[in-house]
Design a protein around this nucleic acid. Structure first.
Lengths: 280, 280
DNA sequence: CCTTGACTCTGACACAGTGTCAGGGCCGAG
DNA sequence: CTCGGCCCTGACACTGTGTCAGAGTCAAGG
């Protein structure tokens, strides 16, 4: 018979935890003095305690440990739990690897440039979105003016058409691009001006395209502050970030732009989110 | 201006969390309607939110994020934080790797044997311990009877000496071994029978050796239930476990045995903890 | 037998980050 | 005016562990 302190020392567990295990019924003392309330444990219980710590060290929660220990789990079920645990661990390690890579990237940045980027680039997932849109073409990603020229005029028309047909927008305007070569080597791209519309009905002869933009599991995104003529800066920042963090952009650029704030009279105050789908 | 719901959608954060960030002062809404209490956020704040999520994704706590964001941290300090974070991450990954290895070992065990060892082997650390002891020699690890024969008689003598000199034991009896070859190739070992004595004073001419057993950072330990004649079973189990989990025993065996429960009349009820120091 | 110091008891609060629920305003569309 | 969808506050929950306060217990030594 050991007192709780001795037993805790033997099992390298804190007294607090032994009391907790008692409270949740995971490991009850072999004997409790009815007068003093003192807990007493036997040497044989050390085996149980060891099992608990072993299972806990595997990363199981106390709940799971309890299940594993006192409801004699079927082999198949046990295998299932282990597999699950394995998967959880593996996933967490993947995550940590990514974190580590990012921390390292930032450390490198500090060492080489003396300061750290404030972390404007963020990985996020993007849900599928039903939109109405109008489309045009532009000369290529390398021709920002061509993009602006061909994209901008679409919005007034789009808004007019939506209003005329009583379609309400449910979110900020979106632009997206895709390659549309008319012949190999051509860099022509299609530009789309879109508004999310939720589940709203759209008649067939409105002159509007109805499209559901696919969800994106991972996109590197950053806010662009200022005129879209300067968007390439933010685009470059994202590209660098993607590289530094060991991701890969999903080419060819299905990048999207979300116009979060676009005061018509002051282009320098625009706020746009640029989203670049990535893998890895 | 976005409502909290819109802003949450944009930042891929839950509404709950935005309110929390407000509460802890990490990210206050740009405007709060004094009448309704509604929170409103600007597009520009999305940048701040992004910074928060980016830092959080690096694994920083909200506290740390707050420090990083609003108390413009010195470069040196920032580097320190990143290094620390890096170390934490690395250490957690090491731990997870070990966990994963153990989970895998158990899965293999299940696949090949149809059941799982109940996890009696546990890794623990052992604190340094001051003991009094008597010593002898035995023919070698492969001669259990020789060990028993040479070790057992030491205990009665030890206890008698301790009693005579008024030295109180502060814990269970311990046996430990070390190689003591009289010539190369010889497998003779020294056997020690010891009792922990805490800080108690021991006079010089008691016939007792006073030794401080060194702490062990990691030992694979298991409980042995039953006669010490059968201890090799448990020893074997530990050895197998050490192997399966990618550790290495610190040779030559500085293994210790702690006699937790030893009813003198029933050897089959003995409970002994066997401790094998390991690395890795 | 009494004191003293080491242990133990219970019950509570704390941490971090997030979900969820209840009970009640607010607002825009019909 | 009502209804549905947001939004508000405040609260409780989870996990695992530390720590603290106030009180009881026990063994050893005077």
């Amino acid at each position: 018979m050991f007192s709780i302190g001795e037993f805790a020392g033997l099992g390298r567990v804190s007294v607090r935890m032994l009391r907790h295990y008692d409270a949740i019924g995971l490991l009850r003392p072999a004997h409790v003095d009815p007068h003093s309330g003192y807990r007493f444990y036997t040497a044989a219980q050390l085996r149980l305690l060891n099992r608990v710590t072993a299972l806990k060290d595997l990363g199981f929660s106390l709940q799971q440990v309890q299940t594993l220990i006192d409801e004699k789990v079927e082999t198949a079920e046990l295998r299932g739990m282990l597999r699950l645990r394995r998967a959880e661990l593996a996933s967490r390690m993947r995550q940590d690897t990514a974190r580590l890579a990012q921390v390292d990237a930032r450390l490198r940045m500090i060492e080489s440039e003396g300061h750290m980027d404030t972390g404007d680039v963020v990985l996020k997932s993007i849900a599928a979105m039903r939109v109405v849109q109008l489309s045009g073409t532009a000369a290529g990603y390398d021709h920002p003016t061509s993009i602006t020229e061909n994209l901008s005029p679409l919005y007034p028309r789009l808004m007019e058409l939506m209003e005329r047909h009583g379609i309400a927008m449910t979110g900020a305007p979106i632009a997206w691009y895709e390659p549309a070569p008319s012949e190999p080597g051509d860099e022509t791209i299609a530009v789309h001006a879109a508004f999310p519309i939720g589940e709203a009905e759209v008649g067939p002869d409105t002159g509007l395209e109805v499209v559901t933009l696919p969800p994106v599991e991972q996109a590197a995104t950053a806010l662009h502050h200022g005129s879209m003529a300067e968007a390439f800066r933010t685009g470059h920042k994202i590209a660098t970030w993607i590289d530094d963090n060991g991701h890969r952009a999903v080419e060819p650029g299905f990048a999207r732009e979300v116009y979060l704030d676009c005061p018509p009279d002051d282009f320098d105050k625009w706020v746009t989110e640029i989203q670049v789908p990535v893998t890895g």
